[in-house]
Design a protein around this nucleic acid. Structure first.
Lengths: 108, 108
DNA sequence: TGAACCTATGAACAACCATTCATATGAAAG
DNA sequence: CTTTCATATGAATGGTTGTTCATAGGTTCA
């Protein structure tokens, strides 16, 4: 602390860890799909056209980050967005991308 | 599209790229410091106790993402947060971390 | 012009990560 | 119990990325 204005260095580390989870297109696509309602692993893999194993691995990361929740439904496991924050974070980023800003490539 | 509810796969890719930029503790700390006002590279490196080169490399990434803006001030280069969205995104993530949620480690 | 200072950049290296493949765990049906 | 379907997990691997080191670019002052 002392380094940051109002937040501890640990908090900022946690923050970067959170965004790291959002920083993968597969995971973002999973979240986007789940935004439309709960879905099981099989259907997620189907929609994203990826292997079930890859989806499962990413779902575990999303679970550990507290962004999605798993629930057994017989043979299948249904996944849901964990809370409203997830949607808010997604929308905030989308606002940044879709609206106004978009062409400030300083590029090396 | 067809895969996503309301957003194209390209948009979601861009979204993950945006969050990837936030997904590094050094960059998050830079943004947090800049939130307190403009600062030059030298002072950033000083505050974060990191080498100037490392900071410069990260600043370039932040610049290319449109999150910060550079401005020459004589010998030094002053950096500023580019727009309000950056602060909003930071706060949204902080809300997720600091408030309610915090202990949902499913862990392997 | 030359020295001193500040910043940017390229190359190299180590650490991290997403995917694949193979396989294990768990549930349901026969 | 055995088979089949659905999901999870471990190991291996190719690709990505953050940091360091060395150095180039640019600015000010003498």
């Amino acid at each position: 602390m002392e380094v940051m204005e109002s937040y501890s260095i640990d908090t900022l580390y946690d923050l970067s860890e959170l965004y790291k989870v959002f920083g993968d297109s597969t995971r973002i696509r999973i979240l986007a799909v789940l935004r439309g309602g709960p879905l099981c692993v099989y259907h997620l893999a189907e929609k994203l056209e990826m292997e079930q194993s890859a989806i499962s691995h990413q779902l575990r990361i999303l679970r550990n980050a507290g962004l999605v929740r798993a629930k057994r439904m017989g043979k299948t496991v249904s996944y849901t967005l964990d809370d409203a924050h997830v949607v808010q974070i997604l929308d905030m980023g989308l606002a940044h991308i879709l609206h106004g800003k978009g062409g400030e490539k300083d590029d090396a």
